[in-house]
Design a binder for these strands. Structure first.
Lengths: 207, 207
DNA sequence: CCCAAAACCACCCAAACGGGTAATTGCAAC
DNA sequence: GTTGCAATTACCCGTTTGGGTGGTTTTGGG
C-alpha cells in the first residue's frame, strides 16, 4: 500500500510537477492537490492522507494557519511545510502550529520522496540550514550576565517563590534576596518578576 | 582537504571501528580518538578539528558536560552526540549545552559519513525519532484551558504589565483584569505571576 | 428557551513587592 | 594595594498584588 500524499500549493506548475513526481514513484501516491487551504483542508479532513505537503506562502490563509487547522482535525497526520526562503521566523511558527517537517522547494525528487517517507515513519525531515536553526534555538541566545548566586535566586524566582521562601532555601535573609533580585532586575533591564521570568526562560538562563 | 573528525567514546571497539570507517573514507580523516573528555577535550581545544563525535554516556564526565566544555573553548566546532537509547531527556540537555546533532549508535557507515558532512556544512544531523522529538517540543504539550480573553490577559501578564496597564490595553476596568487573572491562576493551578508566566511559556500558551 | 461559561465590575484588606539608600565583608584582578 | 564585584544585611515607603465575596450582562450550545 503506497504512502498517500496530499499537496496544498498555490503555484500551478510546482503543484503539478510535485504531484507527477510523487504519483509516478512506486510506493507513493498523490491523488489530491489543492491550490489553497480553504478548499483543501475540508477535503483532506475526510480523506485523511498519510502525509500532507503544505506551502507556507499561500494566498488568503497562510500555511501556518492551515497547518493549525489541519492539526485540529487530523492530529496524527504529519504535515511538512514547503518554503522558498529558508531563513525565516515562519519556521518556528509552523512548528508551533504542528508541522513535523520543513523543506525548501526545488528539492531533488529522490530527496523529496525520502523526506515524505521519513515524515510518514515518525521522523521530521528538515533542510540542513533549518535543522540547525531549530537546534540552535535551544542554546542560550545571549550571554548570561548574572552571578552564580543571582542565578540561584532567579531559578527560585521562576518557580514562583517569594522573598521569604527563597531566603530560607538559600540560608540568607530576606533582605539579601531582595538585594539580589534588585540586581537581577538591573542586569536584565526589567522591573518586575513577570518580565524577569519571561526573559530568563526565553534566553534559557534557567531550564 | 578532508573533514578532520575527532571522536570521544569510551567503548574501545566502537571507537576503533568508527575511526577506521571515517579515516578510511575519502574526504574524511580521523586522527584523534579519546576514551574520555578529561583527556580528549584539552587536546581538541588545541587541535581544533572540523567535527567532534561525542558519546553521551561517558564515565566520569558525561558527554553533556563535555560538550559544554568544548563549546566554551571552540564555539564554532560542531559537536554531534552519539547515543544508544534515543528516547531520552538527555537529548535536550545536549542541545542546550551546544550539540548540533544527535545520532543513534550503529548507524550504517554511509549514513554516519553523511551526517558528519551535514554537521560540517551547517546542518544538524539527527536520527528521525530524535528530530521528531525536538520538533514536537515546539508544540503545546497540554491543552490550553484558558478562554480567549484570559489568554489575552496572560500574554500581557507575560510581558510584565500590571493590572492598570492591562486594563487600559484591553479597554476594561482593573477589577475585571483582576478577575481574569484570578481565574487564570485557578485554571493553571498557580498562585502568583511568576508561576503563571513560567507555566505559560513552558507549555507555550503564549509565544 | 434555558443554562453554563465567559466577560464584566466593585470593595476590602493583609501581605508582598519594587525602589531608594547605606553599609560591611571577602576575594580576585590589575 | 587598591579598585571592583559578589555577597551579605538593614530600614523606609508607597504601590501592587492576591484572596475573599459579591454581583450583572452577554453569549453559545443543548
Amino acid at each position: 500500500m503506497p504512502i498517500r500524499v496530499a499537496i496544498i500549493e498555490d503555484d500551478h506548475d510546482i503543484r503539478q510537477l510535485m504531484q507527477l513526481i510523487i504519483d509516478g514513484s512506486p510506493g507513493f501516491a498523490c491523488k489530491q492537490a489543492f491550490e489553497d487551504c480553504k478548499t483543501g483542508v475540508p477535503v483532506l479532513v475526510e480523506a485523511a492522507p498519510d502525509v500532507v505537503l503544505m506551502d507556507i506562502d499561500l494566498p488568503e490563509m497562510s500555511g501556518i494557519t492551515g497547518v493549525a487547522w489541519l492539526k485540529e482535525k487530523l492530529p496524527e497526520v504529519p504535515v511538512v511545510m514547503l518554503t522558498v526562503h529558508e531563513d525565516n521566523e515562519a519556521v518556528f511558527d509552523s512548528l508551533c502550529a504542528g508541522a513535523v517537517g520543513y523543506l525548501v522547494k526545488g528539492l531533488p525528487p529522490v530527496q523529496l520522496l525520502q523526506a515524505i517517507e521519513e515524515a510518514h515513519h515518525g521522523g521530521s525531515p528538515m533542510s540542513p540550514a533549518i535543522a540547525r536553526k531549530v537546534v540552535r534555538s535551544f542554546q542560550p541566545q545571549v550571554a548570561n550576565p548574572l552571578s552564580g548566586r543571582e542565578n540561584e535566586v532567579l531559578t527560585l524566582l521562576c518557580q514562583g517563590e517569594n522573598y521569604r521562601t527563597i531566603a530560607t532555601a538559600l540560608f540568607v535573609s530576606s533582605n539579601t534576596v531582595k538585594a539580589h533580585i534588585k540586581n537581577i532586575y538591573e542586569k536584565l533591564q526589567v522591573h518586575n518578576r513577570a518580565q524577569a521570568v519571561g526573559k530568563a526562560l526565553k534566553h534559557r538562563f534557567v531550564k
